[in-house]
Simulated assay, not measured.
Amino acid sequence: MTTSEPVADTNLRRSASEDGGWRLFRGAGERREVPFPPAPPWRRFDQQEPSSGSKAPSSGRYLIGPDEADVVNAALHLRRPLLVTGHPGTGKSSLAHAVAHELALGHVLQWPVNSRSTLQDALYQYDAVGRLREAALRRDTEPDIGQYIRLGPLGNALVPRERPRVLLIDELDKGDIDLPNDLLTIFEEGEFDIPELTRLPEDQRAVYVQSDDPGDPIPVTHGRVRCREFPVVIITSNGERDFPPAFLRRCVRLDLPEPDEQRLRDIVAAHLGSSALGDIDDLLREFLDRRATGELATDQLLNAVFLRKGGVDLDAGSLLQAVLHRLGGAL
């Protein structure tokens, strides 16, 4: 009498040969080391810009219409913040990286705003406790205060330079209701004071504080940081609430539209190559139909096309629903 092979093991080996290796996780409890496939181009974190050492914005070019590009140029010429609105996934945050990349302005300074964000944190942080602890250890000499002051993303953007930096203030509408008004003086004056330094004696006029580059401390004289060129400030908003008129007056506004079918094809080709366009008509129709009844992001379409290009059957089970799920409302 022979013992039959367990049905589960038979199905496991059959699925391994039939799925082309796409099922890295099988949920069967079998421990094994498998090579990971290449990540989508927009989810690769080892891409470095030769000039700045920062992560490259994307493997594909940023696609924007001429009318929208003109609004960006208006903000650049006027030295005004650019307030970018639009549905999730229309490329609001990516625009900052595209501008920095195309104009060779180095890596983007990022300030992701949430309900606890304050203007103080965006300008600088002072580690008073760390300095007191160091002073207690030394006893005979006072530690340099500049070692305990680190500029935040907005503070780094206002450091005087020959060429401006790009600052992304992401999702400002998620912040405190007073935060836009707190920014008004900074946007108008292009400067701020560090009170801990303004109180120093005259013989300590210049203090080197820590910047976003650990190897490049920034000299601050009389406790004041004042920009030479106003930074390229790009502010994103999902439209969750309105901003005060005084704040809006100081911004140039850009509303990014949802890409139409042709623009979606161009975006797919830019990220995945023109060969990816050969078998996506059904995915495009499904994406546009779902987007008409609820919010979807463009990168959700890219995810679906990437999986399809890798040989994944998106019609299997609820996989397409998982990839093209609505962004708003109850799950």
Rank of each mutant, 00 (worst) to 15 (best):
A269G: 13
R150A: 10
P244N: 10
S275D: 15
F247D: 08
T221N: 13
R265C: 12
E229S: 14
L172A: 03
D242H: 11
P214K: 12
Q262R: 13
L151F: 04
P217Q: 11
P164I: 04
I149M: 02
P153C: 05
N238Q: 09
A206L: 11
L254M: 06
P245R: 12
F287T: 07
D176H: 14
P153S: 09
R228V: 03
V232C: 10
I169P: 05
L183G: 02
D282K: 14
Y208N: 13
D170M: 05
G278E: 15
D213V: 12
V207F: 02
C227F: 00
V225W: 10
R241Y: 04
V252C: 11
F192M: 03
G215E: 15
L172C: 02
R224C: 05
L184Q: 01
R150F: 04
P153D: 01
E196K: 12
G278L: 13
P214T: 04
E202N: 10
L277Y: 08
N238G: 11
S237R: 07
P244C: 06
V252D: 09
A246V: 11
P245T: 08
E258S: 13
D242I: 10
G175D: 02
I280S: 12
L256K: 07
R161Y: 01
C227E: 05
Q210Y: 00
Y148K: 07
S211F: 06
F243V: 14
R163F: 01
D182A: 15
S237C: 07
R205L: 05
G278N: 15
Q204L: 12
I234M: 12
H222L: 13
P201H: 04
D170T: 09
I234H: 13
R150M: 06
Q204A: 10
L248M: 13
H222G: 15
A270Y: 01
L183C: 00
F247Y: 11
D176N: 13
R224F: 00
A206F: 06
I194H: 02
I234L: 14
L283P: 10
T198L: 01
P164Q: 06
D281V: 10
I267D: 01
L272C: 08
S275C: 09
D266F: 03
R226I: 03
R165V: 02
A206K: 10
D176E: 13
P219M: 09
V166Q: 03
R253W: 00
V220K: 08
L277T: 05
R199K: 14
Q262L: 10
E191A: 15
P257Q: 06
A246S: 14
R163S: 12
R263P: 06
E191C: 05
E162R: 11
C251I: 01
D203W: 11
L197W: 01
L154P: 01
L284K: 08
R163W: 02
F247Q: 09
F287Q: 05
Q147W: 07
P160R: 04
N238F: 08
V209Q: 01
E202V: 14
E286N: 14
E189Y: 07
